[in-house]
């Protein structure tokens, strides 16, 4: 009897805790902070101020043109998950630049109800024709304002 009474009381408490823990497992796909693109932010080389640019951006690995308006301070550029380097061409009416980067692709399942999550880590500059570049985030993540800063 002692065991049964003890078991029923404890069982009630334990089941309540389990229910609470189970209910807290609520996620949706938009809360995944990984991103499948890197972010490049533009700066003036002399003043170090943010710079509005009007580049047409393309990648040698894609037929897509990653267009850019004339007043953008920043651009998100997708990376090829089946490669480990990417060459991006920045064309404007007055100047052309390029940026070659390296990276490691990773896939994960954020939630079984969401599409697989693609993100990149180990971002680094291999070559660039900009006056200067800085890596401020080596992982593609929504919480970062940029991965690369380019100065020209």
């Amino acid at each position: 009897m002692y065991f049964c009474r003890l078991m029923s009381n404890r069982l009630l408490i334990i089941m309540s805790i389990c229910t609470l823990l189970g209910c807290s497992d609520i996620d949706n796909c938009t809360s995944d902070s990984n991103t499948s693109f890197m972010v490049v932010r533009f700066f003036d080389f002399e003043t170090k101020e943010s710079k509005k640019v009007g580049f047409r951006v393309s990648s040698t690995a894609s037929t897509d043109l990653f267009g850019l308006s004339t007043d953008s301070l920043v651009i998100g550029l997708p990376l090829d998950p089946l490669d480990s380097t990417g060459l991006f061409l920045f064309d404007s009416d007055t100047n052309d630049y390029f940026l070659r980067v390296r990276y490691d692709a990773s896939f994960s399942l954020f939630d079984s109800n969401c599409d697989p999550s693609l993100f990149f880590s180990g971002l680094d500059t291999l070559r660039s024709s900009f006056d200067s570049t800085a890596i401020i985030g080596t992982v593609t993540n929504r919480q970062l304002t940029a991965n690369f800063e380019v100065y020209f």
Partner: peptide, 17 residues
């Protein structure tokens, strides 16, 4: 193992990891 078809701006890519 993950099998997935992805388009990340580089056309449809078969991912088999």
């Amino acid at each position: 193992q993950l099998i997935y078809t992805l388009n990340n701006g580089f056309g449809d890519q078969e991912i088999d990891l």
